[in-house]
């Protein structure tokens, strides 16, 4: 981070990383959700799609704020994923695209607040749900 790459500093970094890992292992903080490795092969594809989606909905949100036709609505959708990690990914993706926010989660039912009925239709069409299910893969 600082541009200095002497042996001492790199050695100290390795030692502190190993010490932290030892402490986390001793406190039993490591479980199967720590590093979801089964995502990684398909993650890059999904991130590109998500980035494109974020920019598109940014422009739509800007249009709604300027023109002022705000008709908020709130509804529930069902998440079809099996693991908790995939559900959290789905909920975070919904929240990350401006215009839709996840307000509550109970088991596999998400409560979503949308700024406009267009955004609501976007979520209700289940396109993102299918993408995240593809990302999760066959289990």
């Amino acid at each position: 981070m600082s541009g200095h790459y002497t042996n001492l500093i790199i050695g100290l970094g390795i030692v502190s990383c190993a010490f932290c890992t030892y402490l986390a292992n001793r406190a039993k903080l490591i479980d199967e959700e720590g590093l979801p490795l089964f995502f990684f092969p398909r993650l890059l594809n999904y991130l590109f799609w998500l980035f494109k989606e974020i920019i598109i909905s940014n422009f739509n949100t800007a249009k709604v704020i300027i023109s002022g036709n705000v008709e908020p609505e709130i509804f529930t959708v069902k998440a079809s994923q099996h693991t908790d990690v995939a559900r959290v990914t789905y909920a975070n993706s919904i929240t990350l695209t401006p215009g839709t926010v996840t307000t509550k989660i109970k088991n596999n039912i998400l409560e979503v607040h949308a700024l406009n009925s267009d955004f609501g239709d976007d979520v209700r069409s289940n396109e993102m749900d299918k993408k995240v299910k593809l990302l999760e893969g066959e289990r």
Partner: peptide
């Protein structure tokens, strides 16, 4: 409770 339409049963 937010303003606007509420569709279906809420949690």
């Amino acid at each position: 409770v937010p303003e606007g339409k509420k569709i279906g049963k809420l949690l």
